[in-house]
Write a protein that binds this DNA or RNA. Structure first.
Length: 147
DNA sequence: GCCAACGTTGGC
DNA sequence: GCCAACGTTGGC
């Protein structure tokens, strides 16, 4: 590790994600205070497939949906997909994540939509998908907008 | 609170 | 296997 910045911005697998949560259901502040969580409750096949592709140390933006509509932090995958303990059917999975950093300035959906370079972002194009992939460029741009 | 988008379910 | 009905999500 040469610096904090390198640690934050680089995902060894080259994969980057954005994960959505309603702050009323599970907030960034709660993740900060708990230090770790498993990302439960995904009941959508496409989102599940994204979860299954995650590697340890993949980085993900944490997005507050509905009441806030802003990217608020960066988290990191510490455990790849395993069966969702809150699910009886055995069909669904979770991953473990830990918080990495809080954005100095939340990056709002309105700002993202107004940014030309983010026009293709899956957050906007597939607004109902709760776990979406990001390109490195999208990930880095949102991080820089939030710093 | 409304509505658009979209995923799921079930009848045929 | 199609498609109408329905439920859910999430932005506005």
């Amino acid at each position: 590790m040469t610096s904090n910045q390198t640690q934050t911005v680089i995902s060894p697998s080259g994969q980057y994600w954005l994960m959505k949560s309603e702050p009323e259901a599970y907030s960034w502040q709660r993740l900060l205070s708990e230090g770790k969580t498993f990302w439960e409750g995904v009941r959508n096949y496409q989102a599940r497939n994204n979860l299954k592709q995650m590697q340890v140390d993949d980085l993900a933006l944490f997005y507050h949906s509905v009441s806030e509509k802003a990217v608020v932090g960066v988290c990191k995958v510490t455990q790849t997909a395993y069966p969702d303990p809150t699910d009886d059917t055995g069909k669904w999975v979770v991953v473990d994540v830990v918080p990495v950093e809080t954005l100095a300035v939340p990056v709002t959906l309105a700002t993202i939509k107004a940014t030309e370079a983010l026009a293709a972002i899956a957050l906007v194009r597939q607004s109902r998908l709760s776990v979406v992939p990001l390109t490195l460029a999208e990930f880095e741009l949102i991080l820089s907008m939030g710093s």
